[in-house]
């Protein structure tokens, strides 16, 4: 049975109109979802008696297991910066390299690269897992015993990804800056006290808070985009790859946009 009667092909305007309507509806749905997640997060400790274990496993998977790849990227980034930074004549500026280190590692690429890795690992995993749970009616099974899927499934992922994102960004910074110090010892030895005091002088509260805020919001974006898309599945397992691809596309796009907005917001 079809809901639509046998009408003519809709005009371009009508198609745009319905697309705009759908986009608005989706946005409202996304904000409603976010609001629900926030409410449930607020009640997480009191309501979700069995969600803590899910949270622990989520942090283990998103945070601890991603530590190696994050460290690897941070070390290579720190190495590259200190290598090129040492080619800047000291007469130009003795501490320009520290400014570059802080700008690239702490303010910009640290949070963004960490977010890309987390999106590629955990965002994909969450979207896949949740959409396959919808398809196999596991979500309904949670509903049937009274467990709210948002508080039991989304909130631990939301908290886990966000906490892991913040922690991973800190580890990224630590390993990137420490690696650049170690590499500097081979190129142009600097005493540790000199290196770290110069670094600390360049490391402003603005840079640190920008970095932490970025990782916090990136974590929120990744967990929400992937779980929201995961729940969009309906009936068929063939929907899952489509959903995952859409989640990754939306996730990466949003991360880049949010990164620019936050950088601008903190520049003023």
């Amino acid at each position: 049975m079809s809901l639509t009667s046998g009408e003519e092909h809709p005009s371009v305007l009508a198609r745009w109109g319905s697309a705009a309507f759908e986009l608005t509806a989706n946005l409202f749905y996304a904000f409603g979802f976010f609001w629900n997640v926030l409410l449930e997060t607020f009640h997480f400790r009191s309501r979700s008696k069995v969600g803590t274990q899910v949270l622990v496993m989520q942090i283990l998977f998103t945070g601890v297991n991603a530590l190696f790849i994050i460290t690897l990227i941070a070390v290579s980034l720190g190495t590259v910066i200190i290598f090129y930074g040492n080619q800047i004549p000291t007469a130009v500026s003795t501490n320009l390299v520290y400014t570059i280190l802080i700008t690239v590692i702490t303010r910009e690429l640290g949070p963004l690269l960490t977010a890309f890795i987390v999106m590629a690992r955990s965002g994909v995993a969450i979207a896949t897992e949740l959409s396959s749970m919808v398809v196999t009616h596991e979500i309904e099974a949670y509903l049937a015993i009274g467990i709210n899927p948002i508080s039991y499934l989304v909130v631990p992922r939301f908290l886990g990804v966000t906490l892991s994102m913040i922690a991973l960004n800190l580890y990224f910074n630590l390993s990137g800056l420490a690696a650049s110090y170690l590499v500097a010892q081979f190129i142009h030895p600097i005493p540790a006290s000199e290196y770290f005091s110069q670094l600390m002088a360049q490391l402003t509260p603005n840079a640190v808070s920008l970095s932490v805020v970025k990782s916090l919001i990136f974590g929120i974006v990744i967990s929400l985009v992937s779980s929201l898309n995961g729940f969009r599945a309906q009936q068929s397992t063939t929907e899952i790859p489509v959903i995952v691809i859409r989640a990754v596309g939306q996730g990466f796009g949003l991360l880049i946009v949010v990164n620019i907005l936050l950088t601008l917001a903190f520049a003023g």
Binding site: T136, H137, E138, E140, A141, Y142, A144, I145
Partner: peptide, 12 residues
């Protein structure tokens, strides 16, 4: 209440 699903719907 208890609910038994057609496909069992166990948590994988």
């Amino acid at each position: 209440t208890g609910f038994v699903f057609q496909n069992a719907a166990l948590w994988a």
